[in-house]
Amino acid sequence: MSESITVVGNITAPELKVTADGVEILNFRIASTERRYDKAEETWMDGVTSWYSVSAFRRLADHGHRSFRKGDRVMVSGRLRMRSWETPTKKGVTAEIDADMLGHDLLWGTTTFHRDGGPSRPASESEPTDSPWAVPGAESGPVVDEWETTGPGGDEAAAVADEEAQPRVLVAAAAPF
């Protein structure tokens, strides 16, 4: 059985492995500790800590490995699987998450995002590669700045005569989402 889950917690050291087929796999564990406020003591108390084993694949694995460090506070969203295990001396159940999404928890710090163009999306000549505002996959041309040159009622001659009196409006055309 597989269910969707989102967990926030601190991670152990992320470890990147590459299969014989070249598939990247990132593995780490995440500790999520319940916090509650004790009114009698007027302090925050730690509750139960739940541990999850996390696996991410391909580009998500590569990005996670380059972004995360041991102890980082992160968010993980993915499919939950409970796996039973047994050794000669004990048995138990492990909670495993196949990650669909990984990210830092910005409540505890900041991060800088760098878009990865990746091999599946080469930059075209008309698309600036250094633009922080580029929309991935959008058919886009350059952003156009035009000054409105018509006066009230669309009369261009009146607009020229009243150029000083008319406020100018900047109109920007952007790519559709």
Rank of each mutant, 00 (worst) to 15 (best):
A56C: 03
V143R: 14
V143A: 12
S131G: 03
E164F: 13
E148Y: 10
V135T: 13
G71C: 02
D162I: 02
A95W: 06
G151E: 01
E164W: 14
A138F: 08
P136G: 05
P128R: 10
G109T: 00
G154K: 07
R83K: 15
A138I: 08
G118K: 00
P119T: 14
A138Y: 03
L102E: 05
L60A: 07
E86L: 00
L107Q: 09
D38L: 04
P119Y: 12
P132R: 11
G154C: 07
K39L: 03
L80A: 06
A99V: 02
V76K: 04
R73V: 07
G47M: 06
G141Q: 10
T94H: 09
T112Q: 15
P136W: 01
T87N: 06
G137L: 00
H63V: 09
A157V: 12
T43S: 15
V135F: 11
E164C: 09
V76H: 01
E146D: 11
T89Q: 15
V74L: 04
K70G: 03
A99P: 06
G92Y: 00
R115A: 14
F68S: 02
G109Q: 03
G92W: 06
D72Q: 01
S32E: 10
S84M: 13
P142F: 13
A157L: 10
K91V: 00
D155T: 03
E125K: 11
W147F: 11
A159T: 05
G103C: 07
E156A: 14
S140Y: 11
D116Y: 02
D116F: 03
W44I: 04
T33H: 03
V74G: 05
T129L: 15
T33S: 04
G109F: 00
T33D: 06
